[in-house]
Each structure stands twice: as C-alpha cells, then as structure tokens.
C-alpha cells in the first residue's frame, strides 16, 4: 500500500514541477506548485503507513494495551498537517501576487515580467 502511495506521490511531484517549469501562464504555474505540494503530502503519509495497522486514535479500549505494534506512525501525520496549512498559506500569497502582476501588466504570461535582469 505504501509503495503505491510513494509512487503516486513522486509522480505527482514530478508532474507538478514539470507543469511549474513549462507552463507560460502564471496561474498554471501555481497549479503546478499546488500539485507538487499535494504530492509531497502523499509521500509523507505513505511513509507513516505500516501494514494492516489502524489509525493512531485510541478510541477502542483494546488499542490501549501494547499500542506500539497496533497503530501507524503518528509523527509524519502531524507533520503533514502543518505542511498542508503551509501549502495553503503559500498558495494564497502566490495567487495574490499573480493578481497584482495581472493588474500591473494585464497579462499572465511570465515572460512579460522581465524588467529586472542582468
């Protein structure tokens, strides 16, 4: 199961970066970035998965005893939580940048914003 997650995650990251680098439209770039971000989250979660183990929530009494070999790894899940929210924050910021860029030059093509060079 985790191998599948890992593969999908890596492919998503690769696709995201590919989209990020080849698309001319700024919004498409941001979409590429979001996809690779989701890809990273999938990878992190698939790392935490251990074969036929339950979620790290001890709501059933039987989980309380010898929980070590009953639950999956909770730490990556905590990390992913933060990663997702960071992803949202960064995407929101990028989108507002895209908006401002659009308002400046009325175009979303990245090649038009070359004022600062050399």
């Amino acid at each position: 199961m985790e191998y599948i997650g890992l593969i999908t995650g890596f492919i998503l990251v690769i696709l995201g970066i590919w989209g990020f680098l080849t698309q001319k439209n700024i919004l498409k770039m941001i979409i590429g970035f979001t996809i690779s971000d989701t890809g990273i989250n999938v990878i992190i979660v698939s790392i935490s998965y251990l074969k036929n183990r339950t979620a790290p929530i001890l709501n059933r009494p039987d989980l309380l005893t010898d929980t070590v070999n009953k639950i999956t790894d909770p730490v990556p899940q905590a990390l992913v939580l933060t990663a997702i929210v960071i992803g949202v924050g960064v995407t929101a910021l990028m989108l507002s940048y895209a908006l401002r860029l659009y308002q400046e030059k009325n175009t979303l093509d990245i090649n038009n914003f070359k004022d600062l060079k050399w």
Partner: peptide, 28 residues
C-alpha cells in the same frame, strides 16, 4: 525505502506513553 515493519524510536515512545503523559485519545 523498505517499508519499516515496526515503529521507530520516537513513534514508539509516543505510542507507549502518549496517552498517559498527555491524556488525549488522538495521539496525532
């Protein structure tokens, strides 16, 4: 990546005394 069979050091610590030290059912 070889799909670990058991929880590593930190995770097993959390699993063992997460509930007792912090007292929340949801370890995450």
């Amino acid at each position: 990546f070889d799909g670990s069979k058991t929880l590593n050091k930190t995770a097993s610590y959390y699993a063992k005394n997460g509930a007792s030290e912090v007292g929340s059912t949801n370890i995450v």
